[in-house]
């Protein structure tokens, strides 16, 4: 099922409730009654077609009209990416962290489990660095490129920057932050000692799967939508100098 603008927002959630976290990022609150996607979006001042592209790409990995997503402004795309970062940092990571803490607390006898906490702590540090670099360097740069593409290139430092570190360099070194999650999942699935609170373990594994999927969708927007779009602008700007 592809979501259209006249689909009822409630039906979207019934179809696949994992979209709730996407709605959270757009700051849409529950209780939408029988309102359609379009109605809810206009209520919250959200660009409906952008919302639809994001939701559909999130729901169906094969639905990826990256060409269509590229028609939206860098500003709009980055706004969503930033909101997603914020969602990871304030919801996803703390939730997993908290459950791992509980796992250790409940199994004091299994002192080896402490290593799982250490592993996740290392992961979290790497993760935060990755996001920070995008928030503080990559995204502001992309926005400057867009501004120049609209208002003309009157920023000489930007030309220097474009030749020194461009979007292409970012894409080349953009690393796969899902990889380490895969290890953690596998350790919990295959190698953890038989602890009594299986429900907790399952919950952690579910959260890891969900974060992994989410990150995959996120990186795809960074690499297949934002990256190429900015590179296109860089090319045009450099051609004019």
């Amino acid at each position: 099922m592809h979501i259209a603008k006249d689909t009822k927002m409630g039906d979207v959630v019934h179809h696949n409730h994992s979209v709730l976290t996407v709605m959270l990022r757009f700051n849409i609150k529950l209780g939408f009654g029988d309102k359609t996607v379009d109605e809810v979006c206009s209520e919250y001042n959200i660009n409906t077609s952008f919302f639809l592209e994001i939701i559909n790409a999130f729901l169906d990995p094969n639905y990826f009209p990256s060409k269509h997503l590229r028609t939206f402004s860098v500003n709009l795309i980055i706004d969503y990416l930033l909101k997603t970062h914020y969602f990871y940092l304030t919801h996803k990571i703390p939730a997993i962290e908290c459950m791992i803490e509980q796992l250790i607390k409940e199994n004091q006898g299994e002192s080896d489990l402490r290593l799982i906490r250490k592993f996740f702590k290392e992961y979290k540090d790497e993760f935060i660095n990755h996001l920070k670099r995008e928030d503080e360097a990559v995204f502001p740069y992309a926005l400057r490129v867009e501004t120049a593409a609209i208002n003309g290139l009157n920023d000489t430092t930007l030309v220097k920057q474009m030749t020194k570190y461009s979007m292409n360099d970012y894409l080349n070194e953009h690393d796969n932050i899902e990889e380490k999650l895969f290890d953690l999942k596998n350790i919990l699935i295959k190698y953890i000692p038989p602890i009594s609170n299986q429900a907790l373990c399952i919950h952690i594994i579910e959260e890891l799967f969900s974060l992994e999927k989410d990150l995959h969708d996120h990186s795809r927007i960074e690499e297949k939508v934002l990256g190429p779009k900015v590179m296109e602008m860089e090319k045009q700007l450099l051609a004019h100098t």
């Binding site: 080896d112 799982i116 990889e179 290890d183 596998n186 295959k190």
Partner: peptide, 26 residues
Amino acid sequence: KLGIKTTSGLTIYAVLNKHIRIEEVE
């Protein structure tokens, strides 16, 4: 064989399977 790529992941595996003791890596 293990489905674990990272060094820290391999370390956890080695400890959980008693190939090394946790004190050696902490």
